[in-house]
Amino acid sequence: MQINVNGENKECSTETSVSKLLESLDIDNRYIAVELNHKIVPRTQFNEMILRENDSLEIVTFVGGG
């Protein structure tokens, strides 16, 4: 199925959790926050939150700034 991650279309299998997705995208999950369809997904729900067709995710982290 198709989902959108940080503005890019991605393919993933059904029953993919947020944790699985992060793993498959090689995203270092220590310092990130995730929004699913504009709602924050608490870190404690990464394992159980299952993605659906056309879901839109924003995955953010800290970068250098002033």
Binding site: N6, I27, Y31, V63
Partner: peptide, 30 residues
Amino acid sequence: TVAVRRANIGGKPGESLLDHIDKDKYTILP
């Protein structure tokens, strides 16, 4: 201070800004 931006998809561990900052020593102000 640090900024919040989209994570790099496929970023390798060790590339995170916070890996280079001693979090016991500094208070992080996003």
